[in-house]
Simulated scan of single mutants.
Amino acid sequence: MRRFLNRLLPKSMRSEAVTIPVIRLHGTIMAGGGQFRPSLSLATTASLIEKAFAYADAPAVAISINSPGGSPVQSRLIYKRIRDLAAEKDKKVLVFVEDVAASGGYMIAVAGDEIIADPSSIVGSIGVVSASFGFTDLLKKVGVERRVYTAGKNKAVLDPFKPEKKEDVDRLKALQLEVHETFIDMVKERRGSKLKDDPDLFTGLFWTGKKGLALGLVDALGDMREVLKDRYGPKTRLSLVSSPRGFFARRLGFFGSSAPADIAGQAANGLLDAAEDRALWGRFGL
């Protein structure tokens, strides 16, 4: 009861330090990931989010976001878990953008009751993108014949080793439009009248935090420590929520029971993952 009454007092009259749990959601967003490519997904973030909202006396949860996006499904699942717990625990959610909160990263950011960004942060990119490669002539050059057998005429659509078909591309774009509409609805629901009437807002463009403030994509400019101490008093303590892994857990998690060939395969896949990861960050000059 004393702590509850203490929170009602002006910050200058508070007798106790307020502790604010902090979650760092940094990285690309996608299901899976692994040792060679740490990523954000509901599976990798759920326990952190639960722990942060378990701070009974904390008036708010602070979330640091630094993500160029990724899976729209995982982005929405993380967003929903944050909002569900915020309602259940009756806590305010303050989101702080570091380098970038774009695409799926911004989808997670709108889970915040307030979004605070650095003036030079990148925000926005409210759109959907699919990227792949075409290898239609590669197999001929290396003398390899590819054999694919399917049941169902559409089971091998957008095969990277075959020329594109217009109907396949049209089908993909239709799916993208549906996902894009869901994204737009989420942003409008959470940001509401704060959003400015700008024709470029939902085109996939992105802006600095300073411009994002003018567009209504963020609420303020600043950094986490300064904002939290100003809001909850100079004695405010930031408690980073993490899931540390011990020495043996790290070793077992990496090697497990895999044979050397499996580890080599994981490493090869890791190189491809790293290239894709680099491309996501590269879109924003990072």
Rank of each mutant, 00 (worst) to 15 (best):
T45M: 02
R237W: 13
A267E: 14
A58P: 01
R76V: 10
I49S: 00
E145N: 11
R37S: 10
L213H: 11
D90L: 11
E164I: 14
K229A: 08
V169Y: 10
T182K: 07
A275G: 08
L205P: 06
L9K: 08
R14E: 04
I263D: 03
T28R: 13
K229G: 06
D219A: 06
T208K: 13
L272Q: 08
P119L: 06
V179I: 10
P38G: 02
S47L: 00
E164Q: 13
S120P: 06
G246P: 04
S121Y: 05
A259G: 15
I23E: 00
S15F: 13
P119A: 11
L280T: 07
A54K: 01
K155W: 14
D230I: 04
S130K: 04
E164L: 09
L94Y: 08
T136F: 05
G246D: 09
P244Q: 01
Y79E: 13
S125E: 11
D273M: 07
A43W: 01
V123R: 05
S193P: 06
A151Q: 10
V93N: 03
L172E: 13
G143I: 07
L42P: 00
Q266A: 11
E88L: 15
S64Q: 07
S193L: 09
A151D: 12
A264T: 12
R146E: 09
R283N: 07
A52G: 02
L40Q: 00
A156T: 07
E226Y: 09
D198F: 15
M107W: 14
L221M: 11
V144P: 05
F284C: 03
Q74A: 02
D200G: 11
T19V: 09
A31E: 15
D262Q: 12
A274D: 12
K155Q: 14
F183M: 11
K188P: 04
F255E: 08
I23K: 00
P72W: 05
V179D: 05
K89V: 04
F133C: 09
R237A: 07
T182M: 09
R237I: 11
K235P: 06
E50Y: 00
I49Y: 01
E178T: 14
N154P: 02
F53H: 00
D198C: 13
T150I: 12
K173C: 09
I263P: 01
G253N: 01
R146G: 06
A62G: 03
L217T: 13
L42A: 02
A131T: 10
E189H: 14
V18W: 14
F183L: 15
S130H: 07
F53A: 00
A249P: 02
S41T: 01
L228I: 04
P260M: 10
G112M: 02
L139H: 13
L205G: 15
G216F: 02
K11N: 12
D273E: 08
R24S: 04
S41K: 01
D200K: 04
Q74C: 02
R24W: 01
L286D: 03
I65E: 02
G134C: 12
T19F: 13
M224V: 03
L195I: 07
S12N: 14
P234A: 04
L217H: 11
V227R: 08
L138M: 08
Y232R: 06
R245C: 00
